[in-house]
Amino acid sequence: MIKVPKKPLPSLLTIIGYPFAIALTIFSFFQVGFNLEDFKRNWENRKLVTNTLFNPKWEWAIENASQALLETIQIAILASILGCFIALPLSFYASRATNQTTITYLIYKSFLNFIRTIPDLFWAMLFTVAVGLGPFAGVLALIMFSMAIMGKLLSETIDSIDLGPLEAAKASGAKHNQAVFTSALPQILPNFTAYFLYIFELCIRASVILGLVGAGGVGRIIETQRIFLRFDRISPIIVLILVAVIAIEQFSVWLRRKIL
């Protein structure tokens, strides 16, 4: 007879976690108001959308939205480049491997964590109030957005670099900054490039919706047509966006394979 080892008792996390998760699920569904009555009534409105959504006005969209779509792409390019390059030095300060001073480490780390908690569109709203409506607010919002993601990803990568080269550089007389520049930076550059392309894709997606709060780009046109329920004008714009997003993604996948 084979001795089967006993199954370990469930941990405290499982005992509390499962009922809590189930309770939260039930409670959430009640809270978001899954009300069949309303749903049925609103379901009759579906023609409002479906009639127009699948009847796209292509000429109108191409004529009116292509300039805005270009603006969207420009916002994403500028913001992801600036955001990522601002994040590059910051992440060295926010990593234990390259910053031994606990206080500055904690300050940079919590600064990056803090800007990560604010959603991209909240940034856009705040910047539209601060610097005025228009694409500049969108650029600033996406700079914060990409800076936060790059900071987190990159500082965690720096945490796990090989410390040997850093020590070697210091042993041969390099100052701390010099050592970081010559032996830590080259180690993370491939990661930086990969993250940059990833963040650029995220920015392209995020920049589409910036216009909803007046921060420039194609979202502005979507927002004005949405108010008038002109889904026949929105649907071709959405298709245009999809084509642009997918094309840019393919380009970035190709570039990633080329570089890395």
Partner: peptide, 23 residues
């Protein structure tokens, strides 16, 4: 490929203003 917000406003006339659409 569809951002949540775009999905949300296409759903909006069908499911109504409110958290259900967001969900």
């Amino acid at each position: 490929a569809f951002p949540e917000l775009i999905l949300a406003f296409v759903l909006l006339p069908i499911t109504g203003l409110g958290p259900l659409t967001g969900t």
